[in-house]
Each structure stands twice: as structure tokens, then as C-alpha cells.
């Protein structure tokens, strides 16, 4: 797996063989400081975080989702990243657009139900060709217990495509890391509007 991205103006080339190697590098880079993250069991959030930071992301906005919890913690703990908690997901589209107008790369984290809240606001990103990178954790598609999640889960990808946002779907952690790197380049370098959909099968059953 290979992707090339930009960090604070410097171009960094990363060659990794998968999520474990990238995580090992990330842990080494941190000097083994991080020990108490809630999501130790899942290693992909740390790899996604590092892929986004390597891509020069210094700004984040989110409506929480259990699937994003570690990533939110990682960004919150990073003093070099500005994080925003939102009342509704569409706010993130406007905030990310404003950040880009000022020269900053932003990522938005949300659940598939939140995509429905964003649709008209996405016209801001598409008509202005503002780089847009959304990471969307999917609900309503795999071992879902809550029927209310199903309609928007089904509508997420077609709705995004209909408004002009390109979707890239990850079914496994290794694939996700690769996709995030690629999506970041497409968004920030090629002015594209990208939603990375993280499959519910990969996230696993919701535990109660």
C-alpha cells in the first residue's frame, strides 16, 4: 500500500504494508505515550488519525458516533488540531468550507443518519469546489437492531451521489487506511468532495 500526502507543506511519502505496520510506526513515533485509549482493541482509528495528520489535516468537526469515538478522542487530544462539536452535521460542511477559505484542511466525522441533515448544505462545497472530506460510519446495513436507522442507511450513498459528493466505501481496516489517504489527496489537492463510508460490518455489532 502506498500513498503520498502533504504535511504542513512538506511532502511525505509513506510505504506501509497494512494497518499493523502503520500503527506500529505511529506508536513508535509517539514514544509509546498513549496507553489508555478507550479503543485499544481497534487499531484502525489510530492509523486513520495518522493518515489524516500526514495529509495536513489540522481542523475537525463532528457529531459523535460510537464508531468514531477513538478518532474523536485522538483529535481532541491533539493541541495542533482545532476540533468542533456540532449540534447537527450540516454545520460541519459550512465550517470546513470556511476553514478552507482561510487555508486550513478540515475533516468531518459523522454517522450515516447525519448525511441526511447535510444535503442542501453540501451545495456549498460542490458549487464552490471546496475540498470536502467526510468520514461516515454506516448504520442500518449490517446486524442493525434499530429499524429507524435503516431508511437513512439505505439512502446515504445515493443521496450523497445525487448532490455531487463522491463516495468511497471501506469494508476492512486495511482498505480504510488506503482509502482515507487517497480521499485526502482527492479532496485537498484536486478540490473534490468525498465521503468515505465505513461499513457497519467492519465496525461490528453495537454492544448494549
Amino acid at each position: 500500500m502506498e500513498f503520498v500526502s502533504r504535511t504542513e507543506g512538506a511532502v511525505v511519502a509513506l510505504k506501509v504494508k497494512g494497518v499493523r505496520e502503520l500503527v506500529a510506526r505511529a506508536r513508535k513515533a509517539e514514544g509509546g505515550q498513549r496507553k489508555t485509549l478507550a479503543g485499544e482493541a481497534r487499531e484502525w482509528p489510530l492509523a486513520v488519525y495518522h493518515a489524516l495528520r500526514e495529509a495536513g489535516v489540522r481542523h475537525m468537526a463532528f457529531v459523535p458516533d460510537a464508531g468514531h469515538s477513538e478518532l474523536i478522542q485522538l483529535f481532541d487530544a491533539d493541541k495542533n488540531v482545532t476540533s468542533n462539536v456540532l449540534t447537527t452535521e450540516e454545520e460541519g460542511i459550512a465550517i470546513a468550507s470556511g476553514a478552507w477559505l482561510g487555508g486550513m484542511r478540515s475533516v468531518i466525522l459523522m454517522q450515516s443518519s447525519g448525511v441526511g441533515n447535510c444535503i442542501n448544505m453540501l451545495s456549498l462545497a460542490t458549487i464552490s469546489r471546496f475540498p470536502l472530506l467526510m468520514l461516515v460510519t454506516m448504520r442500518g446495513e449490517w446486524a442493525e437492531f434499530n429499524p429507524w436507522q435503516v431508511p437513512m442507511g439505505r439512502a446515504t450513498e445515493p443521496a450523497l451521489n445525487a448532490i455531487g459528493v463522491r463516495t468511497m466505501r471501506a469494508e476492512a481496516p486495511e482498505e480504510l487506511i488506503e482509502i482515507v489517504g487517497s480521499a485526502a489527496t482527492l479532496a485537498y489537492e484536486a478540490d473534490q468532495q468525498i465521503a468515505v463510508l465505513i461499513s457497519q460490518r467492519m465496525l461490528g455489532r453495537k454492544k448494549w
Binding site: 481542523h59 476553514a99 482561510g102
Partner: peptide, 10 residues
């Protein structure tokens, strides 16, 4: 909100 993003970036 766009103002917020811009203010944070600059």
C-alpha cells in the same frame, strides 16, 4: 458557521 471555520483557520 463559515465565519467560524475561517476565524479558526486565520
Amino acid at each position: 458557521l463559515m465565519g467560524l471555520g475561517l476565524a479558526q483557520a486565520r
